[in-house]
């Protein structure tokens, strides 16, 4: 079975190009941008009317992007994940931990064992106690997990104006804007599960907009207006990244938009490392069940032939 798996993966990937051709041309994009536009207006109106009732956040719906891992034949764009890791390491990891991901997992991003070892060794990990009962620092090894920037949530909150930066391990699955009726029914057919990455991309690129006067009044001091933030008009995180801040070796544009796409894809991988394996296994399983159901249906017809019912 373990040998079978790569074969299943290959089978799943072989169908990917066809699926993408469909996705690109499909009605998804249009309806998505319409929704985004439609989402803006009521939110703005509501805000201008003052607060008849609690305003609903986020004020704007995130834009739906094309992700390589979306859809039944989704797969990782390894170059994108590597760029996302770079952004995480150079920018986000200053405040955000990723404690459930181990360095050894990075082999899934296309790195060799040696590269992973070298990468891990760049981190300092606390170990111990040693023979004298003391904790000590040592370079990381592949079986170590990404060290968190703060020793505990209290320290994280204290260093960040009372708002602890959330851990990245599961964030891409733990954040998603609500999908209203009837969108959530269409999601069943489109297999939309990218609410997390869409939200993260929208949030990182959503700074620097002008709030309406009504909204401006409700912004707490020390927070930054962002209409895509899901629980308030503004959040404690300042704009985290700017154009050109991280250097890309592969020629990808060094813009906030590209950075946020890459880091969001990387976070999706961190949250759901078996996503591609899952979808490829699913393809084979679905084929099997449909064929088996068809056979059973024919057998059922034979058994019941001559028995009116």
């Amino acid at each position: 079975m373990k040998k079978l798996l790569p074969a299943l993966l290959a089978a799943g990937l072989a169908f990917a190009p066809a699926a993408f051709a469909q996705d690109g041309k499909g009605p998804n994009e249009n309806s998505a941008s319409e929704q985004a536009a439609a989402g803006q207006d009521p939110a703005a109106e509501e805000a201008e009317e003052g607060h008849a009732e609690t305003p609903h956040y986020p004020l704007k719906e995130p834009e739906e992007l094309d992700w390589s891992f979306a859809g039944p034949f989704g797969h990782w764009d390894l170059a994108q994940l590597q760029r996302g890791l770079k952004v995480y390491k150079e920018v986000c990891s200053a405040c955000h931990g990723m404690k459930l991901v181990a360095f050894r997992n990075l082999e899934a991003l296309g790195y060799s064992e040696e590269q992973v070892k070298a990468f891990a060794a760049e981190y300092t990990v606390q170990d111990g106690p040693n023979g004298d009962g003391e904790m000590f620092d040592r370079p990381g090894i592949p079986s170590d997990y990404f060290p968190s920037p703060f020793p505990n949530p209290q320290a994280a909150a204290a260093a960040n104006n009372g708002a602890a930066p959330p851990d990245f391990s599961l964030l891409a699955k733990a954040r998603a804007a609500e999908r209203g009726f009837p969108t959530f029914l269409f999601d069943l057919l489109t297999q939309y599960q990218q609410g997390g990455p869409d939200y993260i991309h929208a949030l990182i690129t959503g700074y620097g907009q002008e709030p309406s006067p009504a909204v401006e009044k409700s912004i707490q001091p020390g927070t930054y207006y962002n209409p895509y933030f899901m629980s308030a008009p503004a959040l404690a995180m300042p704009p985290p990244i700017s154009d050109g801040q991280v250097e890309y070796a592969d020629g990808a544009p060094q813009t906030v938009d590209q950075y946020s796409r890459d880091v969001a894809a990387f976070m999706m991988w961190a949250a759901e490392p078996h996503l591609v394996e899952r979808k490829a296994t699913g393809f084979v399983t679905m084929i099997f069940l449909i064929v088996f159901a068809g056979l059973l249906y024919v057998v059922k017809g034979r058994v019941w032939a001559g028995t009116p019912h």
């Binding site: 099997f288 088996f292 028995t307």
Partner: peptide, 30 residues
């Protein structure tokens, strides 16, 4: 009973064997 006649399993029936085999493969994989 007419029902019983059609229900009598015909062991040479390829369809039944094929269905059973597919089911067995699925069960083992699961």
């Amino acid at each position: 009973m007419s029902v019983h006649d059609t229900a009598e399993p015909n062991r040479r029936d390829f369809l039944y064997i094929a269905t059973g085999a597919v089911g067995a493969v699925g069960a083992i994989a699961a």
